[in-house]
Design a protein around this nucleic acid. Structure first.
Length: 473
RNA sequence: GGUGCCAUAGCCAAGUGGUAAGGCAGAGGUCUGCAAAACCUCCAUCGCCGGUUCAAAUCCGGCUGGCGCCUCCA
């Protein structure tokens, strides 16, 4: 059995069959760069970065494309507020995106296209839609005619009729129908604009993604991902534009992540209840934040609380301690060449245990990228590794256990703990040796004094049969 | 009005027909000079009511509570 993933289009889990065997064409909606991104946005980026990592882990070559929306009303507003140019605002927040994304270990896409780089392609795309009778122009603005696309509503599972009778129908103005949407917007006075066959203007919101997909991935792609709140209208409109133009199925699989909530409500830029990822990272550990973001299934809502972050910081510390203790054991084996028996390769039983645990990880992650279960398997690996340390394990065993935990951390994008080497290390080592001597003499007053001194400096001492190890508190 | 989702221990969160993963917190134990870390054990019958079934947290119906979307939103 291969990878199964929930497809919003069908409303069911489906087995992954890509257009080209072994290759995945993957498009994820990127940020509109008028501000920093909040942790709700961050959740989306982390989730699909993890999906990408997992697909690669399973042997797929993933062509991952994520756009920057750098043409938008909100960017214009922002520029007016700050007195900067629209381009300055966009560039600043593109840079800021990379800074924050890097901290969350979100890998760069293969291409990060920007709307402003695709204007001629967008114009050509719209011209073709007009030629094919799917779009019309009114006073310099071009609208997509939803009545010409029979499948309109297939992603959000709503009928045109029900939408037209909808709750929040806006004024028809020059549109033929309330569900029609702008492909090209006529420029208002003083706004940034590009020349087009319909006069000066700028692209509408949805067209960019259709165009970038076609330009960088082709007319048909495998996976298209974004937040739940993009299903309608954004992704619905993308399907309409692309499929109306090509007559082919656009994306085979539509993946949508659940919202990140705060106080039980969606974290949202428009309502003001959000926490910027950048602000949070100033006081919180990025790896623990990433673990938290992956701790629930990606399609479910996840509630943000400070307590939850405390929880995952503690949980991650358990993983890091295990890694540290495995390293300590490996070092102590290597430092004691006289004990030949533990210098051996990984033993058969260890290999088998690790194979079983890797298989378990793949089994749960294959099932719609169930990272919550994947994390649970990782903790099982940690428990077994700790258990192994109570035994006379070989160097090969220790290394193998360490590697499997690191393998899971890598797939989840959490990565290894920082290796905290600093100049104080020599000093700490000397105190530890002094203490060891005192303990040998059963001078526990001195040994405890040294331990307390170190503790006061944030250094925790732990005695093991292989000697004393230390870590930062 | 339309449409979709959720409700599992003190907390977080998997599981979606075969008798409740994992983590955090808590209790007891082992190990230790004492600790720490680690390991072991303990800690839920799955919102409510009814139905289907040999068997339901898992399927169906109803109810209650919460949330998303219906052209700003990841």
């Amino acid at each position: 059995m291969g990878i199964r993933l929930y497809n919003t289009l069908s409303g069911e889990k489906e087995e992954l069959h890509t257009l080209e065997p072994g290759k995945v064409r993957f498009y994820a909606c990127g940020p509109t760069v008028y501000n920093l991104f909040h942790i709700g946005n961050g959740r989306m980026f982390v989730i699909f970065d993890t999906v990408r990592r997992y697909l690669e882990y399973r042997g797929y070559a993933v062509r991952y494309v994520q756009n920057f929306t750098d043409v938008d009303d909100r960017i214009i507003h922002r520029a007016n507020e700050t007195g900067d140019s629209v381009r300055e605002v966009a560039n600043r927040y593109i840079e800021a995106y990379f800074e924050d994304a890097d901290k969350l270990h979100i890998q760069r896409a293969v291409v990060h296209p920007r709307v402003t780089e695709c204007i001629p392609d967008i114009i050509r795309f719209i011209e073709e839609l007009i030629d094919k009778g799917h779009a019309y122009e009114e006073a310099g603005t071009v609208y997509f005619d939803t009545s010409t696309f029979a499948d309109y509503g297939k992603l959000s599972h709503q009928s045109l009729d029900s939408m037209q009778a909808g709750f929040r129908v806006d004024v028809l103005d020059e549109k033929h129908d309330a569900t029609d949407f702008a492909l090209w917007k006529a420029a208002k006075a003083g706004e940034e604009f590009w020349e087009s066959p319909w006069g000066p203007g700028r692209p509408g919101w949805h067209i960019e993604c259709s165009v970038m997909n076609e330009k960088y991935l082709g007319e048909q792609i495998d996976i298209h991902a974004g937040g739940r709140d993009l299903v309608f209208p954004h992704h619905e409109n993308e399907i309409a534009q692309t499929e109306a133009k090509t007559g082919k199925t656009f994306a085979r699989y539509w993946l949508h992540n659940g919202t990140l909530n705060i106080n039980g409500e969606k974290m949202s830029k428009s309502t003001g209840n959000f926490i910027m990822t950048r602000d949070l990272l100033e006081r919180r550990d990025a790896r623990a934040l990433r673990l938290f973001l992956l701790s629930a299934h990606y399609r479910h809502p996840l509630n943000y609380t400070e307590e939850a972050l405390d929880h995952w910081e503690n949980a991650l510390a358990r993983v890091d301690r295990a890694l540290k203790n495995l390293s300590f054991r490996a070092d102590s084996i290597q430092a004691a060449p006289q004990f030949l028996s533990v210098h051996g390769d990984v033993r058969r039983e260890t290999e088998r245990a690790i194979e079983a645990i890797r298989a378990a990880f793949i089994r749960v992650m294959d099932d719609d990228f169930n990272t919550a279960e994947g994390i649970s398997v990782m903790f099982d690996a940690v428990r077994q590794a700790n258990l192994a340390l109570e035994d006379n394990v070989t160097l090969g065993d220790v290394t193998a256990w360490k590697d499997i935990v690191l393998e899971f951390l890598d797939v989840l994008g959490i990565g290894s703990p920082e290796h905290d080497v600093d100049v104080a290390e020599v000093y700490i080592q000397s105190l530890i040796e002094e203490r060891a001597q005192a303990r040998k003499n059963r001078d526990f007053v001195t040994s405890d004094k040294i331990r307390d001194e170190l503790l006061a400096k944030g250094i925790v001492i732990e005695d093991t049969p292989q000697g004393t190890r230390w870590s930062k508190a």
